[in-house]
């Protein structure tokens, strides 16, 4: 009898249990096909509250009575967990379950099924106590007569996720434009030009804005905007109007201010763009120069405040290349 009972239980188990498992899957599939946002997006956090809104009946656009924490309509809240307090770290409470059950129509099975799915990407890179190496190149923007190509790099250390200190520098490769040639030829004016040799600065950088964007509502990219300021030196060399005259080199104290943008690619790699103004008091060849000697001409040099605006683009690499998240999802 005992043997028969065991056999019966085994057959019952074989027949019923896989069906249960399959039906559980089908149940979820049906939910998925319904495109019920309540079921898939809202499950993770009760901090995601989506208003039920329809077209206005009075012609006026109604605003929610209880605005979201950030003042928006939480329409891209699924991108937003990082800017909010960390999600719950302990086991779900009865209250949590009750609330989530409401949001999923009371289907506790579905709720438990979805509860461990992470639909919200975390901040891709944590930067605190990491160093960043940025090889970059760029170009000067605001000189019509002489253009410079930049090649350089920057080394940063992050004391927090937003604030870093860096040392950076680049060398310049000059290119005189057609405009310089034509100006001399037709406006009978030989331009007084200096060429930049190098710039090196100590900088402080602050990530002022952080955001995420969805490409075609599928791929999510994370990005940041940072402000930068620093002090350093820039070397310049005069280009004599008379080829027989000697040139000299200036070393100018430089103040740098700028703004940059980065797109996070992985836990250790970003695409880095920056627009910076290297400001300095430079010294130019005097327009009345007659002496060929650089020593004499330098004494009569004309000082002038210069805004050297550059655009830089590079790849930044973070070290160590891996890290552990310090908070739960």
């Amino acid at each position: 009898m005992k043997t028969w009972l065991t056999i019966f239980l085994a057959i019952f188990s074989l027949a019923v249990l896989p069906q249960n498992a399959a039906s559980q899957g089908k149940k979820v599939d049906k939910k998925e096909k319904k495109k019920s946002a309540d079921a898939d997006i809202q499950i993770e956090g009760d901090d995601v509250k989506i208003e039920e809104d329809g077209p206005p009946t009075t012609g006026k656009v109604e605003t929610p009575k209880t605005p979201a924490k950030d003042g928006l309509d939480d329409d891209v809240d699924s991108l937003d967990v990082d800017t909010k307090p960390a999600t719950k770290t302990g086991p779900s409470t009865a209250k949590d379950k009750g609330t989530s059950s409401e949001s999923t129509g009371g289907d506790k099975d579905v709720r438990s099924y979805w509860s461990d799915i992470k639909v919200v990407p975390r901040k891709l890179i944590l930067k605190q106590n990491r160093v960043e190496l940025i090889p970059y190149f760029g170009t000067t923007l605001n000189d019509n007569l002489i253009r410079h190509i930049l090649v350089g790099g920057e080394f940063s250390y992050y004391i927090s996720d937003a604030l870093s200190f860096s040392v950076g520098g680049h060398t310049y490769i000059k290119q005189q434009t057609d405009r310089a040639y034509l100006t001399g030829l037709q406006q009978r004016t030989l331009p007084t030009l200096n060429t930049y040799l190098y710039s090196a600065t100590l900088n402080a950088n602050y990530e002022a804005a952080y955001g995420k964007m969805a490409i075609h509502n599928s791929k999510i990219l994370q990005w940041g905007i940072f402000l930068s300021g620093g002090v350093g030196v820039t070397g310049t060399e005069i280009i004599p109007r008379n080829a027989g005259h000697e040139s000299w080199v200036n070393t100018n104290i430089t103040i740098q201010v700028g703004v940059g943008f980065r797109v996070f690619i992985s836990k250790w790699l970003t695409v880095w763009l920056s627009m910076r103004n290297y400001m300095m008091q430079d010294r130019f060849e005097n327009i009345n120069r007659t002496e060929a000697s650089a020593a004499i001409a330098e004494e009569d040099a004309a000082a002038r405040f210069i805004n050297n605006i550059v655009f830089q683009v590079g790849l930044s690499v973070f070290f160590p290349t891996d890290f552990d998240y310090t908070t739960f999802r």
Partner: peptide, 25 residues
């Protein structure tokens, strides 16, 4: 039977958000 049930459950659980929009509502 137990393995089959577990496998069926796991198969259904794999990446249910695949091809779903990144942002709803």
């Amino acid at each position: 039977n137990t393995l089959a049930a577990t496998q069926a459950y796991a198969a259904d659980k794999s990446d249910p958000l695949k091809d779903e929009p990144a942002v709803r509502k």
